[in-house]
Design a protein around this nucleic acid. Structure first.
Lengths: 330, 330
DNA sequence: GGGATTTGTGCAAACGTTTGTATCTTTGCC
DNA sequence: GGCAAAGATACAAACGTTTGCACAAATCCC
């Protein structure tokens, strides 16, 4: 591999000047800069960022930690962040925690030992507080949290407007004429889900109604399936689900019970996973602006991760599963 | 950040000994090794891998380049590879190409400048040959290709058994009693799709039949939809689709035309995307063993990326869309 | 034209680790 | 006890950049 020293020798100058020329320092004569650039191109020079990082004490890599990359939401967040960071000349190192605390600790350590210049984090369900994050990252490495955030940690946070989103979704169910509305509430260890639950409750309260049933820790199809059966027994005619997967399980259960959707029973999910548009019936869902969150998180990092929350609105996508009044034909 | 030099000072020894103690060199007395380990733990030492990488001339990061991480297949491959690589003490740097040649070049350059110790690649559709890969990586950085491979490049390759998979899927359609079988063939610039087409043709040939229709470059729902209409006109009663998304579009078109599936028309997709099990009718699909491919690719890298192809069998998942004979009730 | 300023380069030290060689200490053996 | 061999540690030079400081050359100003 060709080094700046070799370029310097070829031109009869010193490595310092070559370095300055290539990093765009103003302290170098335009003519020598050109000569250096020409020679570098000719010799096929590629900066050794490892050496550069060592000397500068930091790298151009931003670490992103997510529970899983195969969730539509997270892969879209990553896509959005990647776009903004790449434009800023930074690369992205992605780690998965598989929702496990252990893996999260390992990911944080990996990023620290690789001296990433920042970390974008959405924590694992298993992690109930952020002490390990602060402990491992110290205050050397700027942290931006997104979606699932620990309020106790410093740094920027980018979150969905879970409260208002869930409020809107629940309000939509009320407007459609459903009267006994329950919820599949997701993990209560995550603030996002707690906020959705609050939004759900408040929407009902504001309409002079009360929650029919609430199923915490319901997030996968299996638990959704089970909860839906109980909801039916309890006389529910609609569910706001804080996740799409649990809503999927619920719909399967309801169909098995001969329920007509949306005539007999309405349901709205959350996240707008790709399958929601492909199901029968298609599933109304409270969409997360995933790319937008990723971009906002990346920008927050580029701005130095100032403390404070950026709240990204959510968008209710109305499809068949809650469209009792046939807002749109077909 | 604490360094080995500081540990050395604290113990009254030299950095060399500390380094050797921590890297497990045999040339160090057990008692000093213990002392070093204890002191390192006390002082909260974390090896600076940047410095280490510079000195050793390589890093412990493996780059993985995929078209998109939000495809179930690729994220599962990454998961499998990650698992094996993490066990070997390596980290993973993930890049997306969004199927674009430009982004692939950029990703390769990023990985090279970061001096990754290896690259696992599934190339973008836009890349029609691998010359840029060879040019950028040189022969310094071992390359393992998976799924979509350039046969002209050196190094290990891990591929699906596309030929036999497509053969089996097509044979299944024949066995179900369909007689005018066509195919949605995917991008002909990718060997994987070419092989599936070969398998499709051969299965028909072996059964004394001929392809009813062939639609190359059909891969998204829209083109699948369009192709299905033409297939109907041409008198087709079944399609083997080299992708699930085009099959999805085809099914929508067929339903719109009042076709009963699987009674009037059979269809098998490829990739076993998550939505295939959620559609109505559920879509039979030729599953890719994604995690297995990831693990095999990682192992191939760890073995030094020896030239040669590892072929991973595919598995036909029979669901409603091709189940004319009701192989399984319900 | 001479001193003061600006501009462009060179020098050399750092960043933290690894590693070949040299040096010192211990052990073993007759 | 003395010598050789092995065992343990120290020394110092890398790895390729960046950067403060020094220095030389060019420019400026009166």
């Amino acid at each position: 591999m060709v080094t700046i020293t070799e370029i310097a020798q070829a031109l009869g100058i010193t490595p310092s000047t070559v370095s300055r020329a290539l990093t765009g320092s103003p302290r170098v004569k335009p003519s020598t800069r050109q000569a250096v650039e020409k020679m570098a191109a000719e010799m096929g020079y590629q900066r050794n960022v490892v050496a550069s990082n060592l000397r500068r004490g930091r790298s151009d890599i931003v670490g992103i930690i997510v529970p899983r990359i195969n969730r539509g939401f997270f892969s879209s967040v990553i896509g959005g962040a990647e776009q903004v960071l790449n434009e800023a000349g930074l690369s992205v190192l992605i780690c998965q925690t598989h929702e496990r605390y252990e893996d999260e600790v390992r990911a944080l350590k990996t990023l620290r030992t690789n001296r990433v210049c920042g970390v974008l984090l959405s924590h694992a369900i298993e992690s109930s507080d952020g002490s390990h994050v602060a402990e491992i990252l110290g205050d050397q490495i700027p942290l931006v949290q997104f979606d699932r955030v620990f309020s106790g940690l410093p740094g920027a946070k980018v979150v969905n407007d879970n409260f208002n989103g869930a409020y809107t979704a629940t309000r939509h169910l009320i407007d459609q004429g459903y009267r006994h509305i329950g919820t599949l509430a997701g993990y209560m260890s995550s603030e996002a889900y707690v906020q959705r639950l609050e939004g759900f409750r408040t929407a009902l309260f504001d309409a002079g109604m009360a929650p029919a049933v609430e199923f915490p820790d319901t997030i996968v199809p299996e638990t959704g399936h089970e909860a839906a059966l109980k909801a039916l027994e309890a006389g529910c005619d609609a569910l706001y689900s804080a996740g799409d997967f649990s809503a999927l399980g619920a719909i399967q259960a309801l169909k098995e019970q001969g329920c007509r959707i949306p005539e007999d029973f309405g349901i709205v999910g959350t996240a707008n996973e790709s399958f929601t548009a492909l199901m029968t019936p298609t599933l109304s869902s409270l969409a997360l602006k995933a790319s937008e969150i990723g971009r906002a998180a990346a920008r927050a990092f580029l701005d130095g991760a100032p403390a404070g929350e950026t709240v990204i609105p959510m968008e209710l996508i109305i499809r068949q599963s809650s469209n009792k009044k046939q807002i749109w034909q077909k």
